[in-house]
Design a protein around this nucleic acid. Sequence first.
DNA 1: GCCGTTTTCGGCCCGACTGTTTTCAGTCG
Length: 560
Amino acid sequence: MLHEFADLMDMHGDIFRRNAYRRAARSIEALDQSIEEIIREGRLRQIPGIGEGIASILMEIVESGTSKELERLRRTFPPGVAEMMRIPDVGPRSAVKFYHELGITNLEELKDAAEDGRIRKLSGFGERSEANILRGIRLIEQQGSRMLLSDALSKGSAIVEHIRSYGFPLVSVAGSMRRMMETIGDVDILVGTSHSVDAMEAFIAFPNAVDIIVRGESKTSVRLSDGTQADMRVVPEISHGAALQYFTGSKEHNVKLRRIAINKGLRLNEYGLFDSAGVNLVAGLKEDEIYRLLDLQPIPPELREDRGEIEAAARNQLPRLVTQRDIRGDLHVHTILSDGHDTMREMAMAAMKRGYDYVGLTDHSASLRIANGLDVDELLTSLEQARQLSNELNFPIMRGAEVDILEDGTLDYPDEVLDQLDYVIASVHSRFKMSIDQMTERIIYAIKSGKMQILGHPTGRLLGRREAYAIDLDAVMEEAARHGVAMEVNGFPERLDLNDMGCRRAKEKGIMVVLNTDAHSEEGLDNMHLAIGTARRGWLEPENILNCLPYPDIKDALAR
DNA sequence: GCCGTTTTCGGCCCGACTGTTTTCAGTCG
């Protein structure tokens, strides 16, 4: 509703109110507590961006389900006018103009008007505007949702490689990809060079680029064959660090940073940090310099969401985020025995090759028929095989299982079998549509069994395909804390579960987290960077992460 | 509408590109 307020303010031309409502909406989205709870505790006004006016609107909405002021504003424009602003290049000014001067009230009518050549009669519009509007409408009609981080990273690195092959060494991915957001809208590429024209040529020559959206001296955008938009910005080498900072975002982080610069009598833009006259360059080549000169610790990209990182950096209290080097082993790995593609030996050797100290093999339990889950005999046989393989390779293989949490909350193997395992990852793979109370109770019952060490993919979501199941994650985490159960961050590209905010909550509650890949093949082990990115976005440090422990400490920890 | 290491009033990030115009408004990120 605050976003709707913002749209309406926008249409009325009140940019400052629009920004205020937008900011308040984002603040609330970033909360990990319900707004009702915050109102009960009387802490509404402590949320940044919420003052007297918006606080009273929120209380009215929570109490009555609506706002008188919102309803009044809704009557000022038909609902379809805001809808038109979804079209690229159509903003509030244009949408309102279409409504006032042509009586257009929705997308369908706008499409007709553009096809009939009525738009070009408006001042400031011509034939090209009409064509763009029609193209934009087609685009939102067929538009897929955001892409997975994993897909974006591979597209991004393909473009980076392509441009590098033309002899440009300073090429980086920026934007939300660099912040490791779980889904990505478009691919952002940055090049530092004084030969901007040649770099643009190289970009446009990318084989997968089928359409040029905009083309200028410092910015070019193309559409890839699958509909993805890729933007490239070019700046002189000397500005590369400033530009990287700028184009990595987030927008909210950057706005706050610029305000800090202004307060210090400086100016920050994508070309560098300047004195207030905007003449003398103070910093620009290195990203870290920008932060230091603003009296901040350099802030890792994954934290740049304006969720307190700037304040922490000012106090010199940024977390020391986990890195790939801190990870000593992968504890969620499938083999050909259940639904994996490769053998125990192949997976163990693949883990060795990646420099790990150990690996944990965790095939599915019997109930998961679709994944060829192991029955008790098969499991016990595999334990013996794993023991022998471990001796032969002289590499610690921990013998675990991914055990289903059944509908009633019991685990899918008898206790005496579970006791023979080094550890148990317990996961929900069935009956996702239970009520929040039932699902929470189901998982808490499993935790109370005392037979599980790790809760696998705790919310069950599949990005773009399936919502998280209804679950009271706070209640589950509190029970997990009591029983010393760790939460998994599952690095499977469409899971990333826990997500970033889940990691942060776990950390606050003092719960250990495990970064796993859920690999079903050797290559699957390479998804660890996705789990790490998620953990970093959740402010996690090595001490919060179970598989940062070396062997045999990890084994002791799991046994405890 | 929000906010304060100049401020309780008067600011609110800033530059690139397009399409329309002959200097700029609108949109985007």
